[in-house]
Computed example of a mutant assay.
Amino acid sequence: MNYGQVYYNDVANGVGCRTAFFVSGCTHHCKGCFNEMTWDFNYGVPYTKEVEDEIVESLKPDYIAGLTILGGEPMEIVNQKEIRPLLERIKREVPKATIWIYSGYTWEELTDKDNKRCHGEDTDAILSMTDVLVDGEFMLDKKDLMLRFRGSSNQRVIDVPQTLKSESVVLSKYNDRDESRKL
């Protein structure tokens, strides 16, 4: 797996001060994507043990709320192979860190065991370690700058633990509009 960037002390991609990890590779190719260069699975540099060590260490200070994984598409099957061990390590070494994942796949697609495009042997484990999933492709015609933590109104901010518990999608308290952005 390649990645394009790691942002330390990011405050735009989830609640609190976070580490944001932008993986490479995406087959959605959403019109108006803000990070089009990461569609290419070969974009950026290789993900290594040293990068993983830096990410895990970055999560340890008390002021860091957690890790956000975006891209590209973290939930492409090939990327899941690297994401799962990273999350397992974080859950062992930094259990206070919350995990946010941005995916162009919907919850329904990710949990459909017959959907081989995005559901593989690592998917359920990854979702079980995720606190918030922002799901759905970005749709330029539904772009809304007033939305918190998402770019278009079709996307959802999902409370994953509650969704797994109830077996139906439970929206996060962050799935709202940010009225403070009005000029």
Rank of each mutant, 00 (worst) to 15 (best):
K173A: 04
M139P: 01
S152N: 08
D176P: 01
L171D: 12
R156H: 09
Y174W: 14
R181Y: 03
V157S: 10
S152K: 06
D159S: 09
S180N: 11
K142V: 00
L145K: 14
R177T: 07
S166P: 00
R148M: 14
L171Y: 15
R156T: 07
N175M: 02
D141T: 07
F138M: 08
L171S: 09
D144V: 03
K173V: 01
S172W: 01
G151L: 12
K143E: 14
G151H: 06
L145I: 07
L147Y: 00
R148Y: 12
D178R: 03
Y174V: 03
K142M: 10
S153F: 00
D159C: 10
Q162Y: 08
D178T: 04
K143S: 11
G151S: 04
F138D: 02
F138P: 01
D141Y: 13
P161S: 08
D159A: 09
F149L: 15
L164K: 01
S180Q: 09
S168W: 13
R181D: 01
E179I: 11
T163S: 13
S168A: 11
K182G: 10
R177G: 02
Q162P: 02
E179Q: 10
D144N: 13
S168N: 15
R156Y: 04
T163R: 06
V170S: 07
R181S: 03
K182I: 00
